[in-house]
Computed example of a mutant assay.
Amino acid sequence: MKSKQAKKGESDVPPGAVAGTLETHTSDIANFIREEISSPPVLIGHSFGGLIVQSYISNMMNKRSSDDWPSSADSLHPELAGAVLVCSVPPNGNSGLVWRYLLTKPVAAFKVTMSLAAKAFANSLSLCKETFFSPEMEDHLVLRYQELMKESSKLPLFDLKKLNASLPVPSIPRNSVDLLIMGASNDFIVDAEGLTETAKFYQVEPVCVEGLAHDMMLDCGWEKGAHIILSWLNNLHNDRAA
Protein backbone atom coordinates (compact mmCIF):
# COMPACT_ATOMS: atom_id res chain seq x y z
CA MET A 1 0.00 0.00 0.00
CA LYS A 2 1.37 3.40 -0.92
CA SER A 3 0.74 6.12 1.61
CA LYS A 4 -0.26 8.61 -1.09
CA GLN A 5 -3.01 6.24 -2.17
CA ALA A 6 -3.99 5.50 1.42
CA LYS A 7 -4.84 9.08 2.21
CA LYS A 8 -7.21 9.21 -0.76
CA GLY A 9 -9.01 5.98 0.07
CA GLU A 10 -7.69 4.34 -3.10
CA SER A 11 -5.48 1.66 -1.61
CA ASP A 12 -5.29 -1.62 -3.49
CA VAL A 13 -6.68 -4.68 -1.75
CA PRO A 14 -3.70 -6.70 -0.45
CA PRO A 15 -3.21 -10.11 -2.09
CA GLY A 16 -3.30 -12.10 1.17
CA ALA A 17 -6.17 -13.34 3.31
CA VAL A 18 -5.83 -10.40 5.71
CA ALA A 19 -4.99 -6.73 5.29
CA GLY A 20 -1.68 -7.05 7.11
CA THR A 21 0.08 -7.59 10.42
CA LEU A 22 0.57 -5.28 13.36
CA GLU A 23 4.07 -4.62 12.05
CA THR A 24 3.04 -3.83 8.47
CA HIS A 25 0.20 -1.53 9.55
CA THR A 26 2.61 0.27 11.88
CA SER A 27 5.15 0.61 9.07
CA ASP A 28 2.49 2.04 6.76
CA ILE A 29 1.81 4.82 9.26
CA ALA A 30 5.52 5.51 9.66
CA ASN A 31 5.98 5.69 5.89
CA PHE A 32 3.08 8.09 5.52
CA ILE A 33 4.39 10.39 8.26
CA ARG A 34 7.89 10.43 6.75
CA GLU A 35 6.56 11.24 3.27
CA GLU A 36 3.72 13.61 4.04
CA ILE A 37 4.07 15.21 7.49
CA SER A 38 6.66 17.89 8.21
CA SER A 39 6.23 18.21 11.99
CA PRO A 40 5.43 15.69 14.76
CA PRO A 41 1.76 14.71 14.44
CA VAL A 42 -0.80 13.43 16.90
CA LEU A 43 -2.01 9.95 16.03
CA ILE A 44 -5.61 9.04 16.85
CA GLY A 45 -6.44 5.34 16.81
CA HIS A 46 -9.87 3.76 17.25
CA SER A 47 -10.54 0.15 18.28
CA PHE A 48 -7.90 -2.05 16.59
CA GLY A 49 -6.49 1.16 15.15
CA GLY A 50 -5.64 2.06 18.73
CA LEU A 51 -3.56 -1.10 18.99
CA ILE A 52 -1.67 -0.06 15.84
CA VAL A 53 -0.96 3.34 17.42
CA GLN A 54 0.29 1.57 20.54
CA SER A 55 2.63 -0.50 18.38
CA TYR A 56 3.89 2.66 16.69
CA ILE A 57 4.61 4.29 20.05
CA SER A 58 6.52 1.22 21.25
CA ASN A 59 8.62 1.16 18.08
CA MET A 60 9.25 4.89 18.34
CA MET A 61 10.40 4.58 21.95
CA ASN A 62 12.56 1.57 21.13
CA LYS A 63 14.36 3.53 18.42
CA ARG A 64 14.68 6.51 20.75
CA SER A 65 16.60 4.36 23.22
CA SER A 66 18.95 2.91 20.58
CA ASP A 67 22.58 3.97 20.28
CA ASP A 68 22.17 5.82 16.98
CA TRP A 69 19.11 7.87 17.96
CA PRO A 70 17.97 10.35 16.66
CA SER A 71 18.98 9.21 13.17
CA SER A 72 17.29 5.81 13.46
CA ALA A 73 14.11 7.33 14.92
CA ASP A 74 13.92 9.88 12.13
CA SER A 75 14.31 7.25 9.44
CA LEU A 76 12.00 4.57 10.81
CA HIS A 77 9.34 5.81 13.24
CA PRO A 78 9.25 9.63 13.38
CA GLU A 79 8.50 11.35 16.65
CA LEU A 80 4.90 12.07 17.65
CA ALA A 81 3.52 15.10 19.42
CA GLY A 82 1.09 12.77 21.18
CA ALA A 83 -1.52 10.08 20.67
CA VAL A 84 -5.20 9.49 21.38
CA LEU A 85 -6.59 5.99 21.92
CA VAL A 86 -10.36 5.85 21.36
CA CYS A 87 -12.20 2.71 22.51
CA SER A 88 -8.91 0.97 21.88
CA VAL A 89 -8.19 -2.72 22.02
CA PRO A 90 -5.96 -3.17 25.11
CA PRO A 91 -2.19 -3.79 24.82
CA ASN A 92 -2.76 -7.50 25.46
CA GLY A 93 -5.20 -7.77 22.57
CA ASN A 94 -8.86 -8.73 22.59
CA SER A 95 -8.53 -12.22 24.09
CA GLY A 96 -9.18 -10.93 27.61
CA LEU A 97 -12.27 -9.11 26.40
CA VAL A 98 -13.54 -12.22 24.63
CA TRP A 99 -13.09 -14.52 27.63
CA ARG A 100 -14.61 -12.00 30.01
CA TYR A 101 -17.67 -11.67 27.77
CA LEU A 102 -17.98 -15.44 27.42
CA LEU A 103 -17.97 -15.89 31.19
CA THR A 104 -20.12 -12.92 32.20
CA LYS A 105 -22.17 -11.94 29.14
CA PRO A 106 -22.45 -14.97 26.85
CA VAL A 107 -25.28 -13.50 24.76
CA ALA A 108 -23.27 -10.34 24.15
CA ALA A 109 -20.23 -12.49 23.33
CA PHE A 110 -22.24 -14.37 20.71
CA LYS A 111 -23.54 -11.15 19.18
CA VAL A 112 -20.08 -9.56 19.03
CA THR A 113 -18.64 -12.69 17.42
CA MET A 114 -21.43 -12.84 14.85
CA SER A 115 -21.23 -9.13 14.14
CA LEU A 116 -17.46 -8.86 13.77
CA ALA A 117 -15.97 -12.26 13.00
CA ALA A 118 -18.85 -13.39 10.80
CA LYS A 119 -19.48 -9.88 9.42
CA ALA A 120 -23.17 -10.17 10.30
CA PHE A 121 -23.26 -6.42 11.01
CA ALA A 122 -23.20 -5.91 7.24
CA ASN A 123 -26.63 -7.48 6.75
CA SER A 124 -28.44 -6.73 10.00
CA LEU A 125 -29.47 -3.20 10.86
CA SER A 126 -30.30 -4.09 14.46
CA LEU A 127 -27.01 -5.92 15.03
CA CYS A 128 -25.02 -3.13 13.41
CA LYS A 129 -26.69 -0.58 15.67
CA GLU A 130 -26.22 -2.66 18.82
CA THR A 131 -22.56 -3.33 18.04
CA PHE A 132 -21.42 0.13 17.07
CA PHE A 133 -24.01 2.77 17.95
CA SER A 134 -26.34 4.05 20.63
CA PRO A 135 -30.00 2.94 20.65
CA GLU A 136 -31.00 6.55 19.92
CA MET A 137 -29.10 6.56 16.62
CA GLU A 138 -31.50 7.11 13.73
CA ASP A 139 -31.84 4.12 11.42
CA HIS A 140 -31.07 6.05 8.24
CA LEU A 141 -27.69 7.05 9.69
CA VAL A 142 -26.95 3.48 10.76
CA LEU A 143 -27.77 2.31 7.23
CA ARG A 144 -25.47 4.93 5.76
CA TYR A 145 -22.53 3.93 7.94
CA GLN A 146 -23.32 0.24 7.53
CA GLU A 147 -22.84 0.58 3.77
CA LEU A 148 -19.58 2.47 4.24
CA MET A 149 -18.28 -0.14 6.67
CA LYS A 150 -19.13 -2.94 4.26
CA GLU A 151 -17.10 -1.25 1.54
CA SER A 152 -14.12 -0.72 3.84
CA SER A 153 -14.14 -4.26 5.28
CA LYS A 154 -13.19 -6.34 2.27
CA LEU A 155 -10.49 -8.13 4.26
CA PRO A 156 -9.96 -8.76 7.98
CA LEU A 157 -7.53 -6.25 9.44
CA PHE A 158 -5.49 -9.00 11.15
CA ASP A 159 -5.08 -12.71 11.57
CA LEU A 160 -6.18 -12.62 15.21
CA LYS A 161 -4.34 -15.80 16.22
CA LYS A 162 -1.04 -14.45 14.92
CA LEU A 163 -1.80 -11.03 16.37
CA ASN A 164 -2.48 -12.31 19.88
CA ALA A 165 0.67 -14.42 19.76
CA SER A 166 2.72 -11.24 19.22
CA LEU A 167 1.17 -9.33 22.12
CA PRO A 168 1.32 -7.50 24.47
CA VAL A 169 2.89 -4.48 22.85
CA PRO A 170 6.10 -3.50 24.65
CA SER A 171 5.63 -1.08 27.52
CA ILE A 172 7.05 2.43 27.48
CA PRO A 173 8.38 4.66 30.28
CA ARG A 174 5.75 6.68 32.10
CA ASN A 175 5.10 10.16 30.69
CA SER A 176 7.36 9.50 27.70
CA VAL A 177 4.50 10.24 25.28
CA ASP A 178 1.49 12.51 25.78
CA LEU A 179 -1.53 10.21 25.74
CA LEU A 180 -5.29 10.63 25.91
CA ILE A 181 -7.08 7.34 26.55
CA MET A 182 -10.83 7.47 25.93
CA GLY A 183 -13.66 5.01 26.23
CA ALA A 184 -17.43 5.09 25.89
CA SER A 185 -19.92 4.14 28.58
CA ASN A 186 -22.15 2.27 26.10
CA ASP A 187 -19.34 0.47 24.28
CA PHE A 188 -20.57 -3.00 23.28
CA ILE A 189 -17.07 -4.19 22.28
CA VAL A 190 -14.48 -2.69 24.65
CA ASP A 191 -15.91 -2.71 28.15
CA ALA A 192 -14.93 -0.61 31.16
CA GLU A 193 -12.37 -3.19 32.27
CA GLY A 194 -10.76 -3.04 28.84
CA LEU A 195 -10.50 0.74 29.09
CA THR A 196 -9.00 0.47 32.58
CA GLU A 197 -6.52 -2.17 31.40
CA THR A 198 -5.17 0.15 28.71
CA ALA A 199 -5.02 3.13 31.05
CA LYS A 200 -3.15 1.18 33.74
CA PHE A 201 -0.66 -0.12 31.18
CA TYR A 202 0.30 3.45 30.28
CA GLN A 203 -0.26 4.85 33.79
CA VAL A 204 -2.74 7.40 32.47
CA GLU A 205 -6.12 8.36 33.90
CA PRO A 206 -8.78 7.30 31.37
CA VAL A 207 -11.72 9.38 30.19
CA CYS A 208 -15.04 7.56 29.76
CA VAL A 209 -17.53 9.50 27.67
CA GLU A 210 -21.06 9.01 28.93
CA GLY A 211 -23.86 8.08 26.57
CA LEU A 212 -21.75 7.10 23.56
CA ALA A 213 -21.12 3.74 21.93
CA HIS A 214 -18.07 2.09 20.34
CA ASP A 215 -18.05 4.17 17.15
CA MET A 216 -18.21 7.39 19.14
CA MET A 217 -16.90 9.50 16.26
CA LEU A 218 -20.03 8.61 14.25
CA ASP A 219 -22.53 8.10 17.04
CA CYS A 220 -25.27 10.55 17.85
CA GLY A 221 -23.74 12.89 20.38
CA TRP A 222 -20.32 12.52 18.75
CA GLU A 223 -19.64 16.13 19.75
CA LYS A 224 -19.00 14.99 23.33
CA GLY A 225 -15.97 12.98 22.32
CA ALA A 226 -14.82 15.58 19.81
CA HIS A 227 -14.85 18.32 22.45
CA ILE A 228 -12.73 16.21 24.81
CA ILE A 229 -10.16 15.53 22.10
CA LEU A 230 -10.11 19.17 20.99
CA SER A 231 -9.62 20.38 24.56
CA TRP A 232 -6.78 17.90 25.06
CA LEU A 233 -5.15 18.97 21.78
CA ASN A 234 -5.37 22.64 22.78
CA ASN A 235 -3.72 21.90 26.12
CA LEU A 236 -1.05 19.85 24.38
CA HIS A 237 -0.35 22.72 21.98
CA ASN A 238 -0.11 25.21 24.82
CA ASP A 239 2.23 22.96 26.80
CA ARG A 240 4.53 22.47 23.82
CA ALA A 241 4.53 26.19 23.06
CA ALA A 242 5.37 27.17 26.64
Rank of each mutant, 00 (worst) to 15 (best):
A226L: 14
Q5V: 02
L179V: 11
F188M: 09
T196W: 01
R174T: 09
C208G: 04
R144N: 10
F188E: 11
A19N: 04
K111M: 15
R240T: 01
I57D: 04
P168N: 11
N234A: 06
N234F: 01
S66V: 00
S231Q: 10
T113N: 05
E79R: 11
Y101Q: 08
S171G: 15
N62R: 08
L212W: 00
V112T: 13
Q203A: 13
E151N: 14
N238T: 12
C87F: 00
K200S: 12
N164H: 15
E197L: 13
A165P: 00
I57E: 09
S171A: 15
S58Q: 05
E147M: 05
K150L: 10
K224F: 08
E36R: 04
S27K: 10
M60C: 05
P173Q: 10
I228Q: 13
G96I: 05
V204M: 02
S38D: 15
A184L: 08
G49V: 04
K111R: 13
K2L: 12
K119D: 13
L97F: 05
K8A: 12
A108I: 14
D239C: 03
N31K: 15
F201E: 07
E205V: 07
S55R: 12
F48K: 04
I44V: 15
M60P: 00
I189P: 02
A109D: 11
L218T: 06
T21I: 13
I181T: 08
L143R: 12
N235P: 00
I57P: 00
D139A: 13
I181Q: 05
L141W: 09
Y202P: 06
E36F: 00
L51G: 04
A73Y: 00
D67K: 08
G211W: 07
N92F: 02
E205C: 02
A120M: 09
M217H: 15
T26N: 04
N164C: 10
Q54K: 06
A17D: 11
H237N: 11
V86C: 04
G82Q: 03
E136I: 07
L76R: 03
M149I: 09
A122P: 03
L51S: 06
N94S: 15
G50W: 06
V112N: 11
G50V: 10
T196F: 04
D12R: 06
P156L: 09
